Simulated assay, not measured.
Amino acid sequence: MSDFKINKTYDQINRKIARGEAVVVTAEEIIDIAKDNGIVEAARQVDVVTTGTFAPMCSSGAFINIGQSKPVIRTTKTWFNNVPAYSGIAAVDCYLGATQTCDDDPLNKRHPGDFNYGGGHVIQDLVAGKSVEIRAESYGTDCYPNRRIEKVMTLKELPNAMLVNPRNAYQNYNCAINRSDRTKYTYMGTLKPGTGNANYSTSGALSPLFNDPYLKTIGLGTRIFLGGAQGYVTWTGTQHRSAVDRGLNGVPLGPAGTLMVMGDLKEMSSDWLKGQSIRGYGCSLSVGLGVPIPILNEEILKFTAVSDEEIFTQIVDYGYDYPEGVARSYGQVSYAELKSGTIMVKGQPVSTHPLSSMVKARKVAHLLKSAIQQSKFLLGQPQHLFGQP
């Protein structure tokens, strides 16, 4: 016997989606629905809650097959618009990382560097339909005698291209400040000295893993919105942690879960994959990602009804502590406070600035909602769950 009053299965929900009868709401909309109707009745009414996020996700990239030449080649070095890709795979396969910089980039030789073009920008150019210059080299073998190829190709002309991101959708992340006496240029953006600002990067109540804090519905095979197309969760991401401090609602109070995801790059859009130049730090890729949460029971519904006021993170110093690997919090703040534009740090008001886009996160959630309502997006039942029991 189930311990829950409401019990649904993936098959039941998918049949409703196929008939166009599923009730689908976003993670923002479910908050008031739960308040007005109660958790059990809301779980009875709603079948799917959609989430969304759009932010720089450095651990991203693409496996690309550039096509064979005559005579044939086994590439050992490959460049896209002068951005190196890792070629230690086989034949003409390579992996282009989002944070890889151009070979001729001055980097931080004149600090802070601008990092105008890198792997994330190449990926954006490819999905935008632009031509990309490809150059590859090899030492030559008896079976692969060619030593060098050069060509110009579009994404459509590439034999295969898959977005494969080892670490996306961080469940929570630090609020970054700088207590030192000089400006710091970090992956969390530019931080002014003397705690002059505070940067954060997540969409709060809309963020996918805040709505399923124990990953009870997210696992291998979960179908997601990725880069403007349908993609999949393939495993937990690098740096994934589940044994962390949590609030009474189960939401982690600092960095925790992550997802490894993949999808067909040829189906994606430059609206949802944007190359980023982070001053003084490097290149990255902003990724649009959304996860549909099936309402299997009232417990799952309760998790999805979490609000910004109930989600907290830690204030971390990137001036002294973070570079030295010192784990220390200078206070705990809610995402409602962060989104208000000002937080208090040691009794002083500090302005806050998001690296993630709430406008685009909200749009991801609504696009996913619309696709499910139109029977264009079915739930993928996980073959292996990552969550805690």
Rank of each mutant, 00 (worst) to 15 (best):
Y10D: 00
E267R: 14
Q171K: 02
F303A: 14
V83N: 01
G52M: 06
A371E: 09
G119K: 15
N37S: 14
D3K: 15
Q12N: 04
Q388W: 13
V83L: 00
M260Y: 15
P159C: 03
A27L: 03
H240S: 03
G275L: 08
T99M: 04
Y281D: 00
Y214V: 06
A229M: 11
L378H: 11
G319D: 04
L296A: 15
F386G: 07
E298C: 13
V233C: 11
G120Y: 00
A91L: 05
C58R: 10
R44H: 04
Q45H: 12
K184M: 10
Q373T: 15
V287F: 05
Q124W: 09
V46C: 11
V326A: 08
F377D: 11
N65R: 15
D103W: 12
K274V: 11
V92L: 07
M162D: 04
R279H: 07
G325R: 06
V326G: 06
Q45T: 11
T26F: 08
P292Y: 01
L265D: 10
P292C: 14
G129S: 08
K5R: 12
D11R: 15
P255D: 08
E299W: 03
S138P: 03
V23W: 07
V316Y: 05
G113F: 00
S201I: 07
G140F: 10
V24F: 02
N65M: 02
N7E: 08
C143M: 09
W235Y: 00
Q383C: 07
L296I: 14
Q12K: 10
Q171N: 10
S356E: 12
D321H: 09
K369Y: 09
T78I: 14
D142I: 08
M188T: 02
P193S: 12
N14P: 06
L163I: 05
T352W: 13
E21L: 14
G247L: 10
K266T: 14
L368Y: 00
G325Q: 06
R328Y: 05
G227D: 07
S277F: 00
V48K: 09
G140P: 03
P159H: 15
I149F: 00
K8F: 04
Y335P: 01
V287P: 02
V83Y: 02
R147K: 14
G237N: 03
V326N: 06
K5A: 11
P112D: 04
E324P: 02
G231N: 04
I218M: 08
N165V: 08
Q239R: 09
G61H: 13
A305S: 14
G129D: 07
W272G: 04
A98D: 01
S370P: 02
V261W: 00
I66R: 00
F312C: 13
A18P: 02
S180V: 07
D321K: 09
P213M: 13
P389F: 05
G341C: 11
F225T: 07
E299R: 15
I315K: 05
E267H: 05
S284Q: 01
V244S: 07
G97S: 14
G194H: 12
A327C: 06
N160R: 13
L378A: 13
R44L: 02
H240Q: 03
H384Y: 15
G341T: 09
L226Q: 10
